[in-house]
């Protein structure tokens, strides 16, 4: 089951009820979204116990901020995923060092991704994003993925992959500008 099984309107309605103090609705929202958010957190933090703590914090935050959710500004799942990513990255930054994997592992991860993504190829936006990423230099796409999925800073990625920070930034920036142009063209 993916988040696609839970329409945005359903999730938005559940959030609205949660904002009014309806814990049963909040439980329903949790059941429909927690696996996706836990997956996002786990990719950043890796360590499972820590990821569980962060997931707990994330849902307490969602409960507390449910009234602030604005469907005009983001979909419910994007809103929740953003909270999850930010909490996980904050936790990661609070750690002195992150277990780093060598550059080969990063490319392996990038190579693995399309097959996982192929499962979800029906999701049009995701397919478009990945189609754009596939047109980038592999190293550029890998840098974008390392930042987004693993929460690495430019500086950490620079040290890990032995690529100057300025070069990484230009790779990422060019790739994402292209990504946005393609998405806007398709919209």
């Amino acid at each position: 089951m993916t988040a696609g099984a839970a329409p945005a309107s359903t999730l938005a309605a559940l959030l609205a009820r949660a904002a009014a103090g309806d814990q049963a609705a909040f439980r329903d929202f949790y059941d429909r979204t927690s696996a996706k958010l836990f997956g996002i957190i786990l990719r950043i933090l890796v360590e499972r116990g820590e990821a569980e703590d962060v997931l707990q914090e994330v849902y307490v935050t969602i409960w507390r901020k449910a009234a602030e959710f604005d469907p005009a500004r983001a979909s419910p799942i994007t809103w929740g995923a953003t909270i999850a990513r930010n909490r996980a990255i904050d936790r990661l930054r609070a750690r002195a060092v992150r277990p780093t994997s060598p550059v080969e592992a990063a490319y392996d991860l990038a190579d693995d991704s399309p097959s996982a993504e192929a499962v979800l190829v029906a999701a049009g936006e995701a397919a478009r994003v990945n189609a754009v990423l596939a047109t980038l230099e592999p190293a550029h796409a890998a840098a974008i993925r390392a930042c987004y999925f693993e929460g690495l800073t430019y500086e950490a990625l620079s040290q890990r992959d032995n690529v100057p920070v300025g070069t990484l930034k230009s790779w990422v920036r060019r790739g994402l500008v292209k990504l946005r142009q393609q998405l806007e063209a398709a919209a």
């Binding site: 991704s113 996982a116 993504e117 990945n130 987004y148």
Partner: peptide, 8 residues
């Protein structure tokens, strides 16, 4: 949309 690639 990148998050779609992350397995639940």
């Amino acid at each position: 949309p990148l998050d779609e690639a992350t397995a639940p």
